[in-house]
């Protein structure tokens, strides 16, 4: 089983969501990736308006419409627009096919403005993915670090959360969230520096590590290499490459009658 937690529609050729999705799947097929999770539309919007959230989620809904056997989608939401985000969760997850949310860089996840969004998604058993990066050259104004993720995790200790990019600087990110057992990490979207998966298995255990690529901006290949090359057990590898993501998705898939 090879499932990818982290893909986008921006950064690949195609005039429509359908064409972009078909292109993405073409490359996923070449890498043996069976299922992809897609979130956010195009062009990338770092601080989207309520209307932009709707448009981007519509693009994802359209992209998924022919690929329900290969792809899942998360709704793009923002703590800058809590009411609109709650409405998007209802529209796309409760009443639609999406199975989680993506929080990006509009506002820090340590801010309590995120709480209502996290709670609503958790009630629906949706997966919660928060981008994090610890950048040596400075974060965007609203961009969360892995330490921000730890603050959010402490406020919601019973809610599974995903720390996107493992904080980018993974030696910091793994440390920042390791005490918070409700947090899993996304391996995608950083250079394939050797040793990331070994450190993560050592500090978090394989059950808290999820393969994601951040394709098409990243290569499926470079990101997959992080896991394929790691000196870990085959049981750990299969958890990371799909088992853990499936386990996180199962409650909402069951609730939707999909599983």
């Amino acid at each position: 089983m090879l499932w990818d937690l982290h893909c986008h529609l921006s950064g690949i050729d195609g005039d429509t969501p359908d064409l972009r999705m078909a292109n993405l799947i073409r490359f996923a097929d070449r890498m043996g990736i069976e299922r992809v999770v897609v979130f956010m539309g195009y062009p990338f919007a770092t601080d989207p308006t309520a209307e932009e959230l709707r448009v981007q989620n519509d693009q994802v809904l359209q992209a998924l419409s022919h690929w329900h056997d290969r792809a899942f989608g998360f709704a793009y939401v923002s703590p800058k627009h809590v009411d609109a985000s709650l409405a998007e969760i209802d529209r796309c997850i409760r009443n639609g096919p999406l199975v989680g949310i993506k929080l990006w860089v509009a506002g820090h996840c340590s801010d309590t403005a995120v709480d209502a969004i996290v709670q609503r998604c958790a009630e629906l058993q949706g997966v919660i993915f928060q981008h994090t990066w610890n950048k040596a050259n400075g974060n965007l104004p609203g961009e969360s670090t892995a330490e921000d993720m730890a603050v959010l995790a402490a406020r919601h200790p019973a809610t599974p959360l995903i720390c996107g990019h493992t904080g980018g600087d993974w030696e910091l990110g793994i440390r920042a969230i390791r005490a918070h057992l409700n947090v899993s990490i996304d391996l995608g979207g950083s250079d394939p520096t050797a040793g990331i998966v070994e450190m993560a298995v050592r500090e978090l255990g394989a059950e808290r590590i999820i393969f994601g690529s951040d394709a098409p901006g990243r290569s499926f290949a470079s990101q997959l290499a992080k896991v394929n090359s790691a000196d870990i057990s085959s049981e750990s590898r299969s958890l990371i490459l799909g088992g853990n993501l499936k386990r996180l998705l199962l409650p909402i898939l069951r609730a939707k009658g999909i599983a």
Binding site: M31, D191, A221, S222
Partner: peptide, 15 residues
């Protein structure tokens, strides 16, 4: 290699 795993560039050839 060894900063990146050997697999990264090799898999790119397949991709």
């Amino acid at each position: 290699a060894p900063f990146f795993p050997v697999e990264s560039s090799l898999l790119k050839l397949d991709e």
